[in-house]
Structures are given as structure tokens and as C-alpha cells.
Simulated assay, not measured.
Amino acid sequence: MKYFGTVSSFDTGNGHGEIKPETGGDLLRFERNAFSWGNNAVPTVGQRLSYDVGTNPQRQPCALNLQTI
């Protein structure tokens, strides 16, 4: 199931960021390797994206398969 949200932060140094779900709730973390458009592109704060929800190795929810809309 695809979800939609807005990038609230992205740190180019460590490759981690957070996305705010449009449906509300907690921010979801994501990593640079979750981008479907290539690892060299950088999301911008406020950018609207679609994503899937999964879990990271620490078993915490995270955003995966990020796509521009």
C-alpha cells in the first residue's frame, strides 16, 4: 500500500531523513538507499513523496521505496 508524506528533514552527511505522513502520526525515518530515483538525488524539505512502510534492522517503522510525485 502506498502512503504519502512530506520530507521534514534530510541530512546529506549521514544519508538519513524523516518524512511526515499525510495521515498524521509519528515521523518515519528513511535512508538514502530507500530512494527509487537513485542515491545521488537529494530530497528537499517540504517535498511530497509516496512511500511504503517497512521496518528497519532495529524493528522500528521506516519509509521505503520513496518516489517523487
Rank of each mutant, 00 (worst) to 15 (best):
residue 3 Y to M: 11
residue 3 Y to Q: 07
residue 4 F to S: 08
residue 4 F to T: 11
residue 6 T to R: 14
residue 7 V to E: 04
residue 7 V to K: 02
residue 7 V to Y: 06
residue 8 S to P: 10
residue 8 S to F: 13
residue 8 S to W: 15
residue 8 S to E: 12
residue 9 S to D: 14
residue 10 F to C: 07
residue 10 F to V: 05
residue 11 D to H: 08
residue 13 G to P: 02
residue 14 N to Y: 09
residue 14 N to H: 09
residue 15 G to Y: 10
residue 15 G to V: 06
residue 15 G to F: 08
residue 16 H to E: 10
residue 17 G to P: 03
residue 19 I to W: 03
residue 19 I to F: 06
residue 19 I to K: 00
residue 20 K to G: 01
residue 20 K to C: 10
residue 21 P to G: 14
residue 21 P to Q: 07
residue 22 E to V: 03
residue 23 T to V: 15
residue 24 G to R: 01
residue 24 G to T: 09
residue 24 G to V: 10
residue 25 G to A: 02
residue 25 G to K: 00
residue 26 D to H: 09
residue 27 L to K: 06
residue 28 L to C: 04
residue 28 L to D: 01
residue 28 L to W: 05
residue 28 L to V: 06
residue 29 R to P: 08
residue 29 R to E: 05
residue 30 F to G: 04
residue 31 E to S: 09
residue 31 E to Q: 06
residue 32 R to F: 12
residue 32 R to V: 11
residue 34 A to H: 02
residue 35 F to A: 02
residue 35 F to H: 01
residue 35 F to W: 14
residue 36 S to Y: 07
residue 37 W to H: 08
residue 37 W to T: 12
residue 38 G to H: 09
residue 38 G to F: 14
residue 38 G to Q: 12
residue 40 N to H: 08
residue 40 N to Y: 07
residue 41 A to N: 05
residue 43 P to C: 06
residue 44 T to V: 10
residue 44 T to R: 14
residue 45 V to Q: 13
residue 45 V to H: 04
residue 46 G to L: 13
residue 46 G to V: 12
residue 47 Q to Y: 00
residue 47 Q to N: 11
residue 48 R to Y: 07
residue 48 R to F: 15
residue 49 L to D: 02
residue 49 L to W: 10
residue 49 L to Q: 02
residue 50 S to A: 10
residue 50 S to M: 07
residue 52 D to Q: 10
residue 52 D to T: 07
residue 52 D to I: 05
residue 53 V to R: 04
residue 53 V to C: 06
residue 53 V to F: 11
residue 53 V to Y: 02
residue 54 G to D: 11
residue 55 T to H: 01
residue 56 N to H: 06
residue 56 N to V: 10
residue 57 P to W: 04
residue 57 P to E: 13
residue 58 Q to E: 14
residue 59 R to A: 09
residue 59 R to E: 13
residue 59 R to I: 07
residue 59 R to N: 08
residue 60 Q to A: 08
residue 61 P to Y: 01
residue 62 C to A: 10
residue 62 C to H: 00
residue 63 A to K: 11
residue 63 A to N: 10
residue 63 A to H: 07
residue 63 A to M: 05
residue 64 L to N: 02
residue 64 L to R: 07
residue 64 L to T: 05
residue 64 L to H: 10
residue 65 N to Q: 06
residue 66 L to D: 06
residue 66 L to V: 04
residue 67 Q to T: 15
residue 67 Q to C: 14
residue 69 I to T: 11
